[in-house]
Write a protein that binds this DNA or RNA. Sequence first.
DNA 1: CCGCAAACATGATTTTTGTCATGTTTAATC
DNA 2: GATTAAACATGACAAAAATCATGTTTGCGG
Lengths: 236, 236
Amino acid sequence: MQSQHDYSTCQSCAQRFNSVFCKAREEYVKAINDQKICNTFKKGQLLFNEGAYPFGVYCINEGKIKLSHQGDDGKEQIIRLLKAGDVLGYRALLSGDRYGASAVALEDTKVCFIPKEIFITVLKNDTGLAFEMMKLLSDELHKAEVKLTHLAQKPIRERLAETLLFIKETYGFEEDGITLNVRLSREEIANLVGTATESTIRLLSDFKKDGMVELDGKKIKILQHKLLLQTANLQD
Amino acid sequence: MQSQHDYSTCQSCAQRFNSVFCKAREEYVKAINDQKICNTFKKGQLLFNEGAYPFGVYCINEGKIKLSHQGDDGKEQIIRLLKAGDVLGYRALLSGDRYGASAVALEDTKVCFIPKEIFITVLKNDTGLAFEMMKLLSDELHKAEVKLTHLAQKPIRERLAETLLFIKETYGFEEDGITLNVRLSREEIANLVGTATESTIRLLSDFKKDGMVELDGKKIKILQHKLLLQTANLQD
DNA sequence: CCGCAAACATGATTTTTGTCATGTTTAATC
DNA sequence: GATTAAACATGACAAAAATCATGTTTGCGG
């Protein structure tokens, strides 16, 4: 099938060695390249919806994506933040399940869609890729279980501080070395922390008063060393 | 190496087709059998400790095990419950990481230890096992992410009801078809729900008043249909 | 540039949940 | 079977967090 947009080839992709495919054999990368379908999503656009059946995986070439659950009462819970080089959609595919979460672009994003058949075929034949996949799943599982513990045991103030540091780990800083390199609404931050929007707004103001962050609309500057103290519950 | 206790062979193990090894090829099951080290753990005994390095995986022949994190303040968070046929220790092994959680026997338990080398070798050569492993990891990841959402969004009452149903899903009922087939302390249930022990005790009493459970020490009888309503937030 | 909706902000209040205190029951050990 | 520590239970209170109410600011489309 013909690519809708051609981000050159997988072989020469800037994310080639930056993804789960880093150890994949060249011949299989080529095979994936022949089948991939590239596409762009505008900020706010849906890549796939919770409950739908997966027909392949997505590889992010450029941009940012959030993966979120819909709680029973309709409230969003953001479970992962993804960036260039990340792959998404594999969890449902490997479980033989529907998507457990929805994927939405946080900014204009370029992704390549890799059809299920070729992905599974390569996975069957390339041990390196299979092990990378298992490592990726294991790492995600570990992160989820740590987050679970924190959600159960830490107060919101600490969780917010941790979340800001997590955002920094994921997306890094802008050139100034202090501004988080992503624009999230207060509500999205709340849905990442697992709290009410108002609580997040209030605590961000507190953090500002305490000199741990600077706020300029959706631009958030963080002072890492001060936030680190906060997460360790050592603030006083 | 000689087994310390011989629970017959992996080939004839009662859990042979009940575990992640269900699709593994016979020759590899035999290879694992030659290397396995069987052992028993008394109730309360530690199989491995958070932070230690993994040297293999454990396959449960008989018994029950809890996997738990230590929160920063030392509070236990139970992240998984395991039973006969389940495998544990693979997460850290596949991540190339230390154990992220400790494993403790909930009752007298027989396990077989499968050394890292043979496990990895078989995983490399048996695609069926590798895919089962990926499915297992994907399923665990999904469960963790759903639990995360509930932890963030549901009140404790609902989470306790869900937890009781989860225990039932995992360990089932005793012969009477109503008593949960495991003995957990109130504190352990609290550490599974993610709440204070007193809250759990209080809510269990409420549940009893409302005719959703019957309590007899650590024996808990549950009325599933009533608890199901509770989880859906339809109690009133 | 204006109008408007969404996002942000903040105070007041209520609800939920955790903590502390204290007593009772249970179960393990000698 | 007495001793004793741990587990269970419950009330009173404090703390944390959500909700509700009400403005203010921001950014977008005309």
